[in-house]
Simulated scan of single mutants.
Amino acid sequence: MNTIGEGARVKGDFEVSISKIVTPFSFLKSHTHDYYEIYYLMSGRRRLYIGNQCYSLKKGSLAFIPKNVPHKTMTASPPEHERLVIYFHDAYIDSAVKEQPDLLLPFSGQEPVLELNQQEQAFVENLLLQMINEYSDKDRRGRALYFKSLLTQLLLFAGRKQPDGSTEELKPVNPSIREIVQHCNDHFREPMTLGQIAGRFFLSPSYVSRLLKKYTGHSFPEYLNTLRIRESQRLLRETGLKMIEIAEQVGYLNITHFNKNFKLITGMSPLQYKKMAQNMEHVTLKHKPEFLEKHRF
């Protein structure tokens, strides 16, 4: 087996590596290995080289690196970033590939790096948190199978994001929706209704509703709740605020409403998410010294 970086090896058929980096460093030489790699940037910026192509990664970038293809990551500005990497062998996913032959399409498709929107980041990060939760407890019953099911979901999601080869010309984005989405992104913590948004942009509520559904795939309440829950996830990971304080900071006046929407969007309660995030932090700290010495990503 080829090595990662300066000698680290994947132990078993799959492995997860996560780390928070605050100092500048780069992988000076490209390397290859005979297993697949999925790289997700949770925060910050990096430059990723796959073969002779360079990709600028930002928060929410999801990269699929094929086996035996030279690659490396390098510092971007600022250097601080947090990333999660999944490694797995053919043998680990072989049974799923037999059932779904194009499961590994993300590694051979036209877009090896996907830029995820808010809703997609929430979905992917939820999968990744569950993966970490499974990976960190080696005695959990059905650990490998459940991890494989989560990996399969991630690969199917990414495969569906690949271009289908259609030559149909893309329609230009309505300029109104850009302004509406930006306003929601900037002010989701404040009280906000569809009627208020429509009035602000001199449009009818029904028209705004249709625009949001067409260009984001979500109704106004769904899009607003997703923005709020995404921010609440960050606060749960990075602060020690009480649940009621977090709910208020992201725009919920009712803790019951907050809990209901959090579970609807993430599939778990805020408390469950907080425990999984704490588990992720534990794994991050546990892996960080070895990561810095051996991987140099």
Results as ranks from 00 to 15, higher is better:
T73H: 04
T73M: 08
M74K: 12
M74Y: 07
T75V: 15
A76R: 11
A76V: 04
S77G: 01
P78D: 12
P78G: 10
P79I: 02
P79N: 02
E80Q: 14
H81V: 00
R83N: 12
R83I: 00
L84T: 06
L84G: 06
I86P: 01
I86D: 05
Y87D: 07
H89N: 13
H89C: 11
H89V: 10
A91R: 10
Y92W: 13
Y92L: 07
I93R: 04
I93N: 03
D94R: 09
S95G: 01
S95F: 04
S95W: 01
A96M: 10
A96R: 15
A96H: 11
A96V: 14
A96C: 10
A96L: 13
V97E: 05
E99D: 12
Q100W: 06
P101M: 02
D102C: 06
D102V: 07
L103N: 08
L104A: 04
L104Y: 02
L104P: 02
L105R: 14
P106V: 02
F107W: 07
G109Q: 02
G109R: 03
Q110I: 09
E111Y: 06
E111R: 13
E111K: 14
P112M: 07
P112C: 08
V113F: 03
L114I: 08
L116Q: 11
L116Y: 11
L116A: 12
N117E: 12
Q118D: 12
E120I: 02
E120Y: 01
Q121W: 01
A122K: 10
A122Y: 05
A122F: 08
F123S: 05
E125F: 07
E125Q: 13
N126M: 14
N126R: 14
N126E: 13
N126V: 11
L127I: 15
L129F: 03
Q130P: 00
M131F: 00
M131Q: 09
I132W: 00
E134V: 05
E134I: 05
E134F: 13
Y135M: 00
Y135C: 01
D137N: 13
D137Q: 12
D137E: 13
D137T: 07
K138A: 10
K138M: 04
R140S: 10
R140C: 00
R140G: 00
G142W: 03
G142H: 04
R143Q: 15
R143N: 08
A144Y: 01
L145H: 12
L145N: 13
L145C: 06
Y146V: 15
Y146Q: 12
Y146P: 00
F147M: 07
F147T: 06
K148R: 15
L150T: 09
Q153R: 14
Q153V: 06
L154C: 08
L154E: 06
L156M: 13
L156E: 14
F157K: 03
A158M: 02
A158W: 03
R160P: 00
K161F: 02
K161M: 11
